[in-house]
């Protein structure tokens, strides 16, 4: 059995997930913050998928946003989504006839463009290597900010209404 070591360097906000042969695997972070994944396999070739999951891709994102607004005490303690509107899709086909080490750096900035940089000590073929801006997510982040403003207005209106009713009584 040969071992496949995958080292992923990325910002935590990208919420990177790794799947090997279609199954998600758990990793550990090292001292420098890189994620280390180890996978033992008997196959001569292993498929590695590195991808990110964004909450705003779901259809009910606005409902979750409202939920976060209230449990975060009117959004004060909600960390929000920041500028996380990137799609990360990396698919590699790695030769695992012997132990292999795959290193991937996500979203490396070079001359104003961002991409994924990878390196492998055995033969690895990138089937897909994409780091792109998702316009839908960008729009939803803006919509989320507008939604929060409306929620604040609604909250203030409700508080004023309740106070007014109590004063009248």
């Amino acid at each position: 059995m040969s071992l496949l070591n995958i080292k992923v360097r990325s910002l935590k906000k990208y919420a990177i997930q790794v799947a090997v042969d279609g199954r998600p695997i758990k990793g550990k972070s090292d001292k420098t913050g890189n994620m280390i994944y180890t996978y033992g396999t008997d196959n001569a070739e292993t498929k590695v998928e590195i991808f990110n999951v964004n909450e705003l891709t779901s259809q009910l994102w606005w409902l979750w946003s409202i939920f976060y607004f209230f449990i975060g005490v009117f959004g004060i303690f909600d960390p929000g989504y920041g500028n996380n509107f990137f799609d990360v899709r990396c698919n590699f086909s790695v030769d695992t006839t012997r132990d292999a080490n795959l290193q991937v750096k996500i979203g490396v900035s070079d001359n104003g463009t961002r991409s994924n940089v990878w390196q492998c000590d055995t033969c690895a073929t990138p089937v897909e290597n994409e780091f792109s801006k998702n316009e839908l997510l960008q729009k939803r982040i803006k919509s989320n900010k507008i939604l929060k403003v409306f929620l604040w207005i609604a909250t203030i209106a409700i508080v004023v209404a309740i106070t007014a009713i109590k004063v009248i009584k």
Partner: peptide, 23 residues
């Protein structure tokens, strides 16, 4: 519901509670 998405959501809720706890 997608397991990965759920994990990210739990993480988000965790961050909110963490911020709340710090405050």
């Amino acid at each position: 519901m997608d397991k990965e998405l759920l994990k990210v959501r739990f993480g988000h809720i965790g961050k909110i509670f963490f911020n709340l706890a710090i405050a």
